[in-house]
Structure formats: structure tokens, C-alpha cells
Amino acid sequence: MAEIRFAGYGGQGIIKSGIIAGKAASIYDNKFSTMSQSFGPEARGGACSSQLVVSESKVLYPYVTKSDVLVAMSQEGYNKFESELSEEGILLIDEDLVKHKPPRGKIKIYSIPTTRFAEQLGRKIVSNVVMLGFFTAVTNIVSYEAMKKALPGSVPEKALDLNMKAFEKGYEYGKQKVKIK
């Protein structure tokens, strides 16, 4: 079982990231996944997070208690949820937006300039999908194929190509990072 926390601010697609990864895991990887999200004013501008539990068997309890993966897309998100990350966990950050402390225990840190990459691709809004590609390459929790299948229908049809490119960009960058480590 893997407990994943996506954190950032409202508008970055933090909730959407949870939905796409959750859908990929449960519909296309045939695992079980449960996604819950912060709901309310905080989801519209302020700090925002979504929680995803992916498991080989039915998810009884859907809240993250000790996260295996923290995806931090904002400093506030990192500050708020860093302590929740397991000592063997994986931390993924947007390196332009998050400054991290020296890692606790055996925490592995992988950083990527998602927002910068997204801007290079043409639209900042796909930074979360760049991160999803990176997440897929680094964590192996959800398969590459499943994620690619989950994107159509989850993003606006006219932006599908851009999202696919964004995903590939993050995925390739992640594969390199993993090789180096």
C-alpha cells in the first residue's frame, strides 16, 4: 500500500493530480485507490492538498496517516506536510517553488522545475502534469501506461496534446534523475 500526499496551492491542479493518478491506478492498473481532498475555501487560492491511497487490496481506510510520498508544489504545502512523510519516504518538489530542509532519516528527495518546464511547453497550467510524469518515473506506484490512459478524459480535449507532452517531459526528466541516483 502507498499513501501519497499532493500539496500546493489552489489553481495548481493539486486535486486533479490526485484524481488522474487515482484513476490510473484503479481503472487502468487494476489496483484499488481512494482519493480525498481538502474541500472549502482553502481549495480556491490558499493551501490545498489531496490524498491518495493506492493498494493491492480494497482500501478500508482512506486517509493518509504516514505518507510514503509527498509531492510538494508550494513552500506552504511542504511546510505543512513534511512532518507527515515517513522516514523512508520520497519527497518530490518543484525546485523553484520549494526550499527543503536537510532530509530526515532515509527520505529521498527528487526535485524538478515543473513550472519552468510547463512554461517552456507553452502553458504554466500543465505544471501539475509535468509533476505527474516525474512522479510516475520516480515512484513506480502507478504505471506509465496507466497514466497515459488516464489523461484523456481527465484534461480538456483541446489541451490533450500539450498535457501528453508535459507528462512525457516530466517522465523523461524523472527517468534521468533516477539513473543518476
Binding site: 490526485g18 484524481i19 487515482g22 484503479s26 481503472i27 484499488f32 485507490s33 481512494t34 482519493m35 480525498s36 481532498q37 474541500f39 482500501v59 482512506p62
Partner: peptide, 10 residues
């Protein structure tokens, strides 16, 4: 309840 209403699963 709000919890089940916003939970996403297969």
C-alpha cells in the same frame, strides 16, 4: 456525508 460525497474511488 461530506466525506463520502467527495471521496473518489472506482
Amino acid at each position: 456525508d461530506e466525506y463520502v460525497a467527495h471521496l473518489k474511488e472506482k
